[in-house]
Simulated scan of single mutants.
Amino acid sequence: MAGKSKRRWQLWASAAALVVAAVLLALILLPPETLAPPRPEVKSASLPHPVETPLPQPDRRKGADALAPLIEQATADKPAETRTSEDNPEAAVPAAPQVASLPPQPPKAATVPVAPVVPALHGEPAWKQNAQPSGPPGAQPMIAIVIDDMGLDRKRSAEVMTLPGPLTLSFMTYAEDLAKQTATGRAHGDEIMLHMPMEPQARHVDPGPNALVTGLDDEELKRRVAWGLGRIDGIVGVNNHMGSKFTESQPGMTIVLEQLRERGLFFLDSRTTPHSVGLATARQMGVPSVGRDVFLDNFMTDPEVARELAQSEAVARKNGVAIAIGHPHDATIAELRQWLPTVAAKGFRLVPVSAIVAREQAQAAHVAKTGG
């Protein structure tokens, strides 16, 4: 009996040792992320014509020396991480920088800052004063290329500013060194806009600091709009970053558009949702506005960007104008570098967005005057 008890004890001890060894082996072999709770995803940060002699454009090559320090500085930085944008499910955009690197956010109790307001010159609103010259409208269909998310990925943003233009560059409100970056864009003949973060439908997506979010009281929304508008001087207008939820809110968009109207700026609806009330509300309020027609880089491959550029041409032939929005991605930059020099020969006119806003305003005034 003693021998049987001893063997039974030895069997139990061996089984326990095997269990302990299996647990230790599992702890060693399992990847760390399976043991820790998942981290929330943070995002910022990504749709007949006679040939006419194109207007002379600024020689962008002359500014290469001015861009060199920007490119050199940005190249030394770690490449920006890319994540999927909620409002453009297939488009990767630079991730928002860590909170520690963001510009300080004004406290909620602070007085609403006053954004720069350009005095009216001979009755002209700020968007006309800050617009890049484009000349009178002609018979050629017009195409405007808007590059969003500017300023976060410094290397690629600087590369965008070497492309032949005029382009429209929309800088993120929370990008750093905005005065220097926007000055470089203007020096190369590009038009400057503000890219304002707004609430997306997906709750887990972070649109960035001081984003416009439904549920905030009116004063806080006004403060956030004013904070964003105060980040860049000399802009022509604003378009939404994300915002598939916020742009469906009439009360929220009314607050945004009231401040744009006060400052003489226009609104470009990025149309991240088919249910946006941005354009309709802007027109009711008398705020100049236009909407995006094409996203260039929902799929960030050269063939897909090329296909969307061809789609932009088709829209312009049909409607007389087309607004295409892209981002500072490698494929987008590469395809634009090949496509932009061909625009005039194809019978199109490359213009800043303000030229299309002016065309829409002139047509609306004609309809109001003649009744049709």
Rank of each mutant, 00 (worst) to 15 (best):
D153P: 03
L216H: 11
S270H: 06
L29G: 05
A364L: 11
G278R: 05
L152M: 09
M161H: 02
D218P: 07
S44I: 06
W339Q: 06
V118N: 03
A280S: 14
E41V: 12
R223Q: 14
L216W: 13
M198K: 03
K4S: 12
D297N: 07
A2L: 13
P54E: 07
P79C: 06
A175F: 02
P352L: 08
P69C: 05
T254V: 08
A355K: 01
V315S: 04
G320K: 01
P141W: 00
S134D: 03
A17T: 11
T247M: 04
V367A: 13
L163P: 06
D206I: 08
P274S: 10
G237R: 02
P116V: 04
R337N: 07
G138P: 04
L27M: 14
A45P: 02
R271V: 13
S244R: 02
R7Q: 14
A368H: 07
A64Q: 14
V367I: 11
V287I: 01
P352N: 08
W12D: 09
A158V: 04
V305C: 00
T184N: 13
L260P: 02
P54S: 10
A179E: 10
L25D: 09
G264L: 02
E219L: 12
M142D: 10
S101D: 15
L336K: 06
A66K: 11
K245N: 11
P50S: 14
A2Y: 06
W339I: 03
P106G: 09
A16Q: 08
H49E: 10
K108V: 14
T301Y: 05
N210G: 12
A211C: 02
A324P: 11
W127R: 05
A226T: 05
R7F: 15
D190P: 07
L24D: 07
L194G: 02
K180I: 01
V114N: 10
K222Y: 11
S46M: 12
G291E: 12
K108T: 09
E33L: 13
L268V: 09
W339D: 08
P141K: 01
A175I: 00
Q361G: 04
A120V: 10
P94Q: 00
K62I: 10
A109M: 04
V353R: 01
A183K: 03
G326V: 08
A36S: 11
R7V: 10
V343G: 04
L279M: 14
A15L: 15
E258H: 11
P197M: 03
F267P: 02
A110I: 02
P125Y: 06
S101R: 12
A316E: 03
W12A: 15
Q259N: 10
A179T: 06
